[in-house]
Design a protein around this nucleic acid. Structure first.
Lengths: 184, 184
DNA sequence: CTGCGAGTATACCGACCGGTGTGGTTACGT
DNA sequence: ACGTAACCACACCGGTCGGTATACTCGCAG
């Protein structure tokens, strides 16, 4: 989605507001006002609030993926949990896609495709990296479970060190770690 | 929270509607109408929509915990992921507490306490069961990560067999399983 | 110099939001 | 017989919702 300068300001304003306050909690009037733009411009660019929501998620998907790639170059896969911890320091409302699903899931909203796409993209990335380190594909999928679990527990669960716990679990799952005290 | 017959019908209606459509998406008029009750009664019983939301989550916490205890008696801890899969067959909108956090997180909403309480309760239960099976406490916490991850991926992620994957990961974490093909 | 895309400002729409107020009816406990 | 809790019906409140309409200005490319 490319757009005009006013369109960019609208996306920026909507992104901040949607993430911090939720999608339904933010009205189009507030978005337009925050962007220093009239409602007319919003509807000229995006056609509807729902479409703007989809663009918001599409952009956020790109931002996260770039952050991830930048921070992970040259580091072992388990460091993905340290990168997550860093990300969550600023993004204290958790996963925007999980949050969006909570609001629009199962309604046929255009954002649903973006949500599924982000989860699929993340899983594909983890599996690819796992395989590159000589690990079997299912291990990459299991790391994805730990990754999503850590995100949820660090935010909604109020467990700040969830990513660190996930890292330790990941070492076990990857086979390079202590298998607990009661290994049969 | 105990209440009158009309109050119970309101909680039942609110629970169904909040879970399926989201909290902000459901108005008090609809809740009252669905319960076959006037708005006045709703406000006489609960005082505000926010308070009703908190009661909704409080009740749901109890329902899940009962479901969990019933289904898990006499079964090994890893079966918790089978129980989750069963639960999610009906509850296809995922975790009500994660969803609620998406809508009210960080706003001082009375529901926040209930959300945190549910996650703490679930973790405590897993840790207790893990310890009872001779596993160290951190393993119980790691199972919690897998549990939350599986819930998210099975719903928002569109990965129906996420609980099954989590079960396999759990076997590794518990130390009673294949440690992947490339164990150093 | 003209046409057009991007933007401004403002006013409006019907519908719905959470919440309150008034008044009346039934049932039960004392 | 009286008070009270629980409910009903209905009407009302100011505010906000997503979305549309009209009319005007500016810069730029043909």
């Amino acid at each position: 989605m490319e757009t005009t300068p006013a369109g960019e300001r609208l996306i920026a304003a909507a992104s901040r507001l949607f993430y911090r306050q939720g999608i339904r909690a933010v009205g189009v009037d507030l978005i337009a006002e925050t962007a220093g733009v009239t409602k007319k411009t919003l509807y000229d660019r995006f056609g509807s609030k729902d479409a703007l929501v989809a663009v918001y998620l599409e952009r956020r998907r790109g931002v996260w993926q770039e952050f991830l790639r930048d921070r992970m170059t040259g580091r072992p896969l388990v460091d993905v949990f340290d990168v997550l911890a860093d990300w969550l320091r600023d993004q204290d409302r958790g996963c925007a896609f999980v949050n969006a699903y909570a609001e629009v899931g199962g309604t046929g909203h255009p954002a649903e495709a973006e949500i599924r796409a982000q989860k699929a993209e993340m899983q594909a990335w983890l599996v690819a990296r796992a395989v590159a380190e000589g690990l079997p594909e299912p291990v990459g999928e299991q790391l994805h479970l730990l990754f999503e679990g850590a995100t949820v527990l660090a935010t909604a669960g109020g467990v700040p060190d969830a990513p660190a716990r996930a890292r330790r679990a990941a070492l076990t799952v990857c086979g390079s770690a202590p298998t607990s005290g009661s290994a049969a």
